[in-house]
Design a protein around this nucleic acid. Structure first.
Lengths: 149, 149
DNA sequence: CATAGTGGTTGGTAATACAAATCATGTCAA
DNA sequence: TTGACATGATTTGTATTACCAACCACTATG
């Protein structure tokens, strides 16, 4: 029964957080997907197919998405010298700045929620979610089930 | 710092779970939003404005959403005898059946993830997420921070 | 070097979402 | 009671998101 409760809590949390992200994104004229793209490109560059695969979208969807973000000056397309077919996408300074602002807003928006937990509980939550997020089947060296933190 | 980690874990979990829901929904020709509508109407009926407010969407968006679902025979529109302006939306037997199938699929899809946690951990996770989801400011009588389960 | 494969874009269509305008019904005050 | 306003929902118009199929450009392989 508890597994069902957990599923329920996860799904409700998902909608709740997605709602917050959608709202904050909207305040900056960013869809949830654009917000994700910006988030990904904050750290690293990526090729179109890579982005599409990561986001679970079709290549053609990426083209339009990147088109619009590029038109807004948030991203740039560049060529890969080793393979003329590849298009690599970078974030621009303007994009980076926007990404930072959005991240701050998200932090502020979620603070009341996470703020209801004390440091120990936050640690627990992070550890538990990390386990849930583990993609592979390998045990992943769970960092102490109950003896955590 | 841990609050940021928690935020990060929550956001990544959100995208992960949303991805699963989108995939499963897609297998049944349901968008994430339609899936939510179906989920809401499983238990109770609702009026258009109510649904829109709950989902954070515009009323006009709801009209189209309900139109399509109704055309598929998943929902019905009914009139409220007390107020002629109000339209109430019900789920149909077909819709209920689909909702159940989808829920099963979601359960199956998330099982590997939640299955990595033992009963105690599942309890912890549910409790922690419940606290995070608490909308109001009241302390909500946290059911045992560390002494849980 | 021809052929097949890979990476992206283009064109077409449907769904999602918003805003503004509209319509029908309710409510309230003069 | 009726005129003015408010509320609930739909309609219309537009942009975005997303898919698929077809296509173009470039690589790799025989």
């Amino acid at each position: 029964m508890t597994a069902d409760d957990a599923m329920d809590a996860l799904v409700r949390t998902t909608f709740e957080v997605a709602g917050v992200l959608t709202r904050i994104g909207g305040e900056h004229d960013l869809s949830l997907t654009q917000l994700r793209v910006l988030g990904i490109l904050r750290d690293r560059r990526a090729r179109m197919t890579e982005l599409a695969a990561y986001l679970g979208l079709d290549k053609s969807t990426m083209s339009g998405l990147i088109d619009r973000a590029q038109r807004r000056g948030l991203l740039t397309r560049g060529k890969n010298p080793d393979d003329g077919r590849v298009v690599e996408v970078y974030i621009t300074p303007a994009g980076l700045e926007l990404a930072k602002r959005v991240e701050d807003d998200i932090r502020r928006a979620l603070a009341p929620a996470t703020g209801r937990l004390d440091p120990d509980q936050l640690d627990q939550l992070v550890n538990l979610l990390d386990v849930v997020l583990t993609r592979s089947t390998r045990a992943h060296a769970v960092p102490g089930p109950t003896a955590a933190s």
